[in-house]
Write a protein that binds this DNA or RNA. Sequence first.
DNA 1: GGCCGTTCTGTGAACGTGCACAGAGAGCGA
DNA 2: TCGCTCTCTGTGCACGTTCACAGAACGGCC
Lengths: 370, 370
Amino acid sequence: MSAHRIGTGRSACQPPIGNRRVAPRGYTDPVSETRTRPKRATIFDVAAEAGVSRGTVSRVLNGEPYVSQSAREAIEAAIEKVGYVRNTAARNLATQTSGAVALIVHEPHAVFVEDPNIGAILLGTNTALSDADYQLVSLIIDSDRDTDRVVSYLGGGFVDGAIVVSAREDDPITAALERLHIPTVLVGRPETAPELPSVSIDNRTAARDITERLVSTGRRRIGMIAAALDRDSGRDRLAGFRDALGDAFDDALVVEVPLYSFHSGQEGMRQLLRRAPDLDGIFAASDAIAAGAVDVLKEAGKRIPNDVGVVGFDDSAWALRCQPALSTVRQPAGALGARAAELVLDEIRRGERHRGVVLLPTEVVWRDSA
Amino acid sequence: MSAHRIGTGRSACQPPIGNRRVAPRGYTDPVSETRTRPKRATIFDVAAEAGVSRGTVSRVLNGEPYVSQSAREAIEAAIEKVGYVRNTAARNLATQTSGAVALIVHEPHAVFVEDPNIGAILLGTNTALSDADYQLVSLIIDSDRDTDRVVSYLGGGFVDGAIVVSAREDDPITAALERLHIPTVLVGRPETAPELPSVSIDNRTAARDITERLVSTGRRRIGMIAAALDRDSGRDRLAGFRDALGDAFDDALVVEVPLYSFHSGQEGMRQLLRRAPDLDGIFAASDAIAAGAVDVLKEAGKRIPNDVGVVGFDDSAWALRCQPALSTVRQPAGALGARAAELVLDEIRRGERHRGVVLLPTEVVWRDSA
DNA sequence: GGCCGTTCTGTGAACGTGCACAGAGAGCGA
DNA sequence: TCGCTCTCTGTGCACGTTCACAGAACGGCC
């Protein structure tokens, strides 16, 4: 199972020569006539039925002006009557487009399965794209070796646009997308490629909201385990924490850890406990960090939430795996994906590139840890 | 968020007239020449480079016989040199195929996000399909109103095959697929449409394995909360349970509940406790049932796993949300999806329909509840 | 009536590929 | 030499659509 990834198979990028045979077409076989797929109506059938030319039908199909009312009505009736459905392959061939948008996830396969946000982003993106008659192509970059394949795939004209989830610093994928002039929108982490439009959450407001909630439940000595302060997301979470505490903010109750990980959470919590054994609240910059903090607190004999309230960030699988279940911030993952899709479609169809970051509101999920 | 679904948007099935405008093509614009996408090499370019005709190139591309060694080598070198990538739209148009396979999930959106198996099935399917140069199209049927749209979409020739996850009894989707003669494979629940090939897990062996494990940890009075005995899956789980206990099997320690739900689990557990207050092991037919059972056992003052060991089935989100985390049976979800894709491709490409059920082995995940 | 602009319609030429057919050339036996 | 088979290659057409262009129909104005 470790080799599983979406759309990064060798043949998806450079189809191997000679591996794809085509089944005999049913309707050329006179014997199995009854088992045959019905022949699809074409634009010619519609034109004949409506008594116009295919050019006029095409104009109606594409919502172009300069079609008489009578012709339009006749054509719409004819479409209904013959059951016409546009042939996507022919349209794509003629327009030199693919009708597809790539969703590129730059995470190991395990994260993809674990993180509920990515699945929801995928759903949101797919919904928005299919509403606009576009097709989603998922590309998962599991290891760095996948990168070349994905880049060559993107160069193959298979997609009209791309949405990149969790792009890396100096990401070769985003660089390739820019070089190929493929409309691109980033989801999250806008700081890695500021020149590209992106959709993200309002980390500062979210951090402020959940910290305020911690305050309102009576906590007085609240610490924070911060991470990734070299990025917008990390800095904003700290800023929101500070906003919520106001004058009560105490620099000594903030520790910075290097990673958004369980282990970092343990480390940070040990530091904080040494500095302030009496603290009664913790805001962790991620659920994984919060889980590590909970682990250390329990070992130190603290009861949660009675002695110390702990809140996290992300609403990832850690939040439910933790004991007690974490109160945390849920990202509007589906909406993130949908909004990103809309921005890409704007650029593909109207050439309008949205500059800068779109921020979406978050939601506090209150469970048992605080 | 409740309206989210994959690929069932109105326009995905019957494209609304006139909503899709096409961006101006870059390469027709002499002013922005430098920003233009490079013109892609075609089969003609390869033919010219190799000094043969496009017919011969096409034969090499499709692995047909009757091509001389020298021509083949020249063409392969030319493909490499000009950076040729086959145009999918043109190929699909010429062959009258779509190069796509639908993955149809007949579950509400919430289940899709919650159930880790469905996500993994999707990943496995996508991997197998993209390795074969096919495209996955996900269709989620959230409410019954989506059904008509999906049926008309399937009739539109947009997919060459379909994989149906968790089909319902008398499913209108599977009926439509058969009527349209679209190659179809079912994942799970083979009993609903026995005439279609399907991929499922070996419920009997899995139930036997996890029950044996329960026995080997010293449990002597083991009960089962069974469900869905009108289906193969439910019956097989009971049979496997019986297999494992052998002579120790006691009919009185089995209760049947109507649903695979938390509530049913509570109900079943209460019944069992009344009949046999001294039991020390429980095999629940699903994780949701197991979670309900755990809930009732705790209320009755039993410690888990010390007093009673509990095991579930599915390795769903319930397993981790439960306290303590459930020991359970993990389905090879990725492999299920991949295998289903392979069967569909066999039928699409070679016309070979696999009859009957393919059973895949499962894995016991041992956590803290037993 | 002649001219012009606006609105509407039809047609030819792509788009890039696969397939069927025709035919070239080699090898071989009569 | 002729005819046959087998291997290999080139070419015309089809797939269903979009786009650019040509031109028809119509009304208004000089």
